[in-house]
Every structure is written in structure tokens, then in C-alpha cells.
Simulated scan of single mutants.
Amino acid sequence: MARLILPGDPEFDIALATPPPDWKIQSAKVGYQVDYVMDAEKGIFRTATQEELNDYLFGGEYEELVDLEDEWD
């Protein structure tokens, strides 16, 4: 039986940082590679097109996430 993983559980952050188990199926369904980016506000992965990935990497959202991680350490 599966258990519910809530904030504060040691496995919570690991679960949020893991891409969905069906990522290969989703990629095959649309016919191209599906990219995932960590949402800096929500702290969970979301899908991104190639254009969204470029904007994420070069538009500041990735740097924002890195800065947040530095604060957590």
C-alpha cells in the first residue's frame, strides 16, 4: 500500500524533484523530446517546450532557482 508523502517527510523533496514516471510515454505521444524544468515558485517540475526551456535557462528563472537553493544550504 502506498503512503502519502507530506511536506516535512524526508522523501518529500526527492519526490518533487523526480520527473513524472510517464515522461517517456508523453515524449513518444507528442513525437519529440519533452523537457522538464523546476518551477522556481512552486518547487515542482513542469513540462516545457524547447522555446520555454531556452527562456527558462537564459531568462533568469533558472538563476532564481539556483539562488533559492543557495539560501537553503
Rank of each mutant, 00 (worst) to 15 (best):
E52T: 10
D39P: 03
R46G: 03
D22E: 15
D13T: 10
D9C: 14
G59S: 07
K29I: 06
L6M: 12
I5C: 11
L4Q: 08
G60T: 03
D39L: 02
F45N: 10
I44G: 08
L16K: 13
K29N: 10
F58W: 11
P7A: 09
P7H: 09
D39S: 14
K24Q: 14
D13R: 15
D22I: 05
M1E: 00
F45D: 02
I14A: 15
A28K: 09
E51W: 01
G31K: 05
M38P: 01
I25P: 01
E51P: 03
I14V: 13
K29C: 13
V34C: 12
L4Y: 00
G59V: 06
P19A: 15
D9Q: 12
E69P: 00
E51M: 04
I44D: 03
V34F: 08
G31V: 12
L4D: 06
R3Y: 00
T47E: 09
A2E: 02
P19W: 11
W23M: 08
M38A: 11
V37K: 03
D73P: 00
L65Y: 06
D9H: 15
P20G: 09
R46P: 03
D67I: 04
Y36G: 07
E64P: 01
L53V: 06
A17V: 01
A48P: 03
W72Y: 04
Y62I: 00
G31T: 12
P21W: 09
E52Y: 12
L4K: 11
I44C: 14
G43D: 07
V30E: 07
P21M: 08
I44F: 14
A17R: 12
F12P: 01
T18L: 05
E52A: 11
G43M: 06
L6V: 14
I14Q: 08
M38F: 06
T47R: 13
E61W: 01
A15R: 07
V30S: 11
T18I: 07
P21E: 14
G31C: 07
I25G: 00
L68M: 13
A15Q: 04
E69K: 13
Q50F: 01
R3T: 08
V66W: 00
E69L: 15
E71M: 10
G43K: 07
D70M: 13
D22N: 15
D35R: 10
D22H: 15
D67M: 12
P19I: 13
P21S: 09
L6H: 10
N54C: 07
E61H: 01
V37G: 05
M1F: 00
I25D: 13
Y56H: 09
V34K: 00
G31M: 09
